[in-house]
């Protein structure tokens, strides 16, 4: 890593840290300082959880092939936050939510997510470690998709929240869910999976929306502050792209007019 990249990495880290801490403190005094735009998938989730509780059927959540220790470690943590919020609300149902995954490193995260959700909802005795299930998958994850299509029928699932790393095999899962009348909310960090999620799910989360679950479904100020920090980084990135482009265009126009004159 060259020294410019090292400096930039440290600067981005410091900027994000300062914005997160300052905005968290500010939100403690003025909660209405930030208004979050509506994300249809997050607006739909409480409705789907309510339906599952009323019907006494489980909600199914899946990490896909995202795991710990690789490049999608933080996606796994973001998915865990979303699943925690869903499981905490669904914990009053006698039918436990199910979390599935194909990377074994995520199994501990999934079990801990369910345990924390039941503890937060004051039903720790309802937690079952086998509600988090590992389905081994080959490199293309098609076997994982096949296992989920079987599982959704056996367990009479009410709705699916598929947020993690999925490829085109998501089409098999969403297709089977549609045939059973089970709504799907999906998102993937893979572009093929994201395209399938947009076409086949009831409501799709796109890109960084996956990481905003805590801010939309939780009550923590720090999670709302992280959305603000994300916006600051986004605007800075836009400026870093636009300003050099405009400067190049202006200098090119000036050069041509000077040579033409």
């Amino acid at each position: 890593m060259d020294s410019t990249t090292q400096t930039l990495a440290i600067l981005i880290f410091l900027l994000t840290m300062v914005v997160s801490i300052v905005v968290t403190q500010f939100l403690r005094r003025r909660r209405a300082f930030i208004t979050l735009r509506e994300v249809p998938a997050y607006a739909l989730l409480p409705l789907r959880i309510g339906e599952a509780i009323e019907a006494s059927r489980p909600i199914h959540m899946s990490f896909g092939s995202s795991g710990l220790g690789g490049e999608n470690t933080l996606l796994t943590l973001a998915g865990a936050e979303l699943f925690y919020q869903v499981a905490r609300r669904a914990a009053i149902s006698p039918t436990a939510p199910i979390i599935t995954l194909s990377d074994p490193s995520t199994l501990a995260v999934a079990q801990d997510t369910l345990r924390r959700a039941y503890t937060a909802a004051n039903f720790p005795e309802r937690f079952r470690a086998t509600s988090a299930r590992w389905y081994p998958a080959g490199p293309r994850s098609l076997v994982f998709a096949a296992a989920l299509t079987g599982m959704m029928g056996d367990n009479d699932v009410s709705a699916h929240v598929l947020v993690g790393s999925f490829g085109t095999e998501l089409a098999l899962i969403a297709g089977a869910a549609a045939r059973r009348g089970q709504p799907v909310i999906a998102a993937s960090d893979q572009l093929q999976g994201q395209a399938v999620a947009f076409a086949m799910s009831e409501s799709a989360l796109i890109g960084e929306e996956i990481f905003a679950a805590g801010a939309y479904l939780g009550e923590s100020n720090s999670q709302v502050a992280s959305i603000f920090a994300l916006d600051v980084l986004r605007w800075l990135l836009i400026l870093f792209i636009l300003v050099p482009t405009l400067l190049t265009v202006v200098s090119e126009i000036t050069r041509r007019s000077a040579s033409g004159g």
């Binding site: 880290f13 890109g207 960084e208 996956i210 990481f211 994300l230 980084l233």
Partner: peptide, 8 residues
Amino acid sequence: IALATIVT
């Protein structure tokens, strides 16, 4: 996704 990963 990359920016959100940094913030997380």
